[in-house]
Simulated assay, not measured.
Amino acid sequence: MIDAHHHLWDLSAVHYPWLMARGVERFFGDPTPIQRNYLIEEFRDEAAAVGGSASVHVQVGAENSLAEARWVQSIAGANPDWPLKQVVFVDATADDLDFQLNAFQALPSVVGVRQIVGRAPGEDAVTGTNTLLDNPAFVAGLQNAGQRGLSFDLQLIPELMGKTADLLARAPDTAVALCHAGSPHDRSNDGLARWAAELCALSDLPQVRCKLSGLGMFEHDWVSESFRPIVETCLNQFGSNRVMFGSNFPVDKLYSNYSTLVQTYRDLIPREMHQAVFNDTAADFYSISQI
């Protein structure tokens, strides 16, 4: 099993301003319980207990993204028996984008980049990340990443899917992984229906894959049936060969343990799709060679 979306942090090695802000509620809830080190040993123990054997580290708001990437590379190098790839942060609109990408691509574990377009309506209104979609340099940056063989991890909210799909169509050679199933934050029946309708704009693009990850961030007291309509919609629209599992740990550790989360997905996903969703899609997308 490959976990296609998780985070690690050593608070003595890399600084994460958002994580260490005390008393600040985030869109996913109160981060206090995870304001501590979350290291590869703890993650491996949790994942390996249910069949995990490789994973993808996704950038997580470090003050210095290159420092974070170099730290993750050191973890990958120290754990050769656990294939670890990483997705790093870059500002795709930066004037020195080529310089940044050259530095990141000097690290063997780097396979993709991420720049968050949307987290949740409330936070997006404050951060203004949605303005990326109106910046011509953003499209050029995506195209640049794709030309270099780097994928792009896309995090956004359903309200932005149509506009983003139009933009991605202009970068058809850039492989895209949709984080957290597109963040269906409104879990009412009407909200899920709107999310599913908007999702079609992305699932229609052949370069887009979908991660079943982070679903606990918008429904903290979730039960298995909470995830069913989301899982079924993603599988119906993308097909199992374009869907992959990600734990989003330790963020989703706030609301579940690892084994419960994995078992929930295993129960909801038809058995004949397990190989693709829990392994093959991620292995292909992130170029993971397993031992």
Rank of each mutant, 00 (worst) to 15 (best):
residue 143 Q to C: 10
residue 26 R to L: 11
residue 249 F to L: 14
residue 180 H to Y: 01
residue 110 V to D: 06
residue 187 R to M: 04
residue 199 L to M: 10
residue 236 N to G: 11
residue 77 G to M: 14
residue 43 F to H: 15
residue 278 F to M: 02
residue 215 L to H: 06
residue 147 Q to M: 05
residue 23 G to C: 07
residue 218 F to S: 08
residue 219 E to D: 01
residue 154 L to M: 07
residue 65 S to G: 12
residue 235 L to V: 00
residue 92 A to T: 08
residue 91 D to A: 09
residue 229 P to Q: 02
residue 117 V to L: 08
residue 172 P to E: 04
residue 81 D to G: 05
residue 271 R to E: 14
residue 17 P to R: 00
residue 64 N to D: 05
residue 208 V to T: 07
residue 110 V to N: 05
residue 220 H to P: 05
residue 209 R to D: 11
residue 35 Q to C: 09
residue 247 S to K: 05
residue 5 H to P: 10
residue 32 T to V: 14
residue 177 A to I: 05
residue 41 E to D: 13
residue 59 Q to M: 03
residue 167 L to S: 03
residue 63 E to P: 06
residue 271 R to N: 15
residue 90 V to D: 06
residue 61 G to R: 08
residue 75 I to S: 12
residue 275 Q to M: 12
residue 114 R to V: 01
residue 244 M to R: 14
residue 69 A to N: 02
residue 14 V to H: 07
residue 35 Q to P: 08
residue 170 R to M: 09
residue 246 G to H: 07
residue 282 A to G: 11
residue 183 S to N: 15
residue 263 Q to Y: 13
residue 140 A to R: 01
residue 233 T to G: 04
residue 246 G to S: 04
residue 128 G to K: 11
residue 267 D to H: 09
residue 170 R to D: 11
residue 289 S to K: 15
residue 39 L to W: 13
residue 279 N to V: 15
residue 101 L to P: 02
residue 258 Y to P: 00
residue 264 T to G: 05
residue 122 G to C: 10
residue 258 Y to I: 00
residue 68 E to N: 09
residue 142 L to G: 00
residue 253 K to R: 11
residue 245 F to T: 12
residue 253 K to D: 09
residue 259 S to R: 12
residue 29 G to L: 09
residue 150 L to H: 01
residue 246 G to C: 01
residue 18 W to P: 03
residue 34 I to N: 11
residue 214 G to Y: 00
residue 262 V to G: 04
residue 34 I to P: 13
residue 50 V to R: 05
residue 29 G to V: 12
residue 228 R to Y: 00
residue 129 T to P: 14
residue 69 A to M: 03
residue 4 A to W: 13
residue 76 A to E: 12
residue 117 V to H: 09
residue 79 N to Y: 11
residue 263 Q to P: 04
residue 213 S to L: 01
residue 7 H to G: 02
residue 59 Q to L: 03
residue 276 A to W: 14
residue 48 A to Q: 15
residue 185 H to W: 10
residue 207 Q to P: 03
residue 238 F to R: 03
residue 54 A to W: 13
residue 18 W to V: 06
residue 107 L to A: 07
residue 56 V to M: 15
residue 74 S to M: 03
residue 285 F to M: 09
residue 269 I to Y: 04
residue 158 P to I: 02
residue 94 A to G: 08
residue 23 G to M: 08
residue 280 D to P: 01
residue 244 M to C: 09
residue 18 W to E: 05
residue 252 D to S: 09
residue 162 G to K: 03
residue 227 F to N: 05
residue 136 P to W: 15
residue 241 N to P: 09
residue 115 Q to D: 11
residue 121 P to F: 15
residue 135 N to P: 04
residue 89 F to W: 14
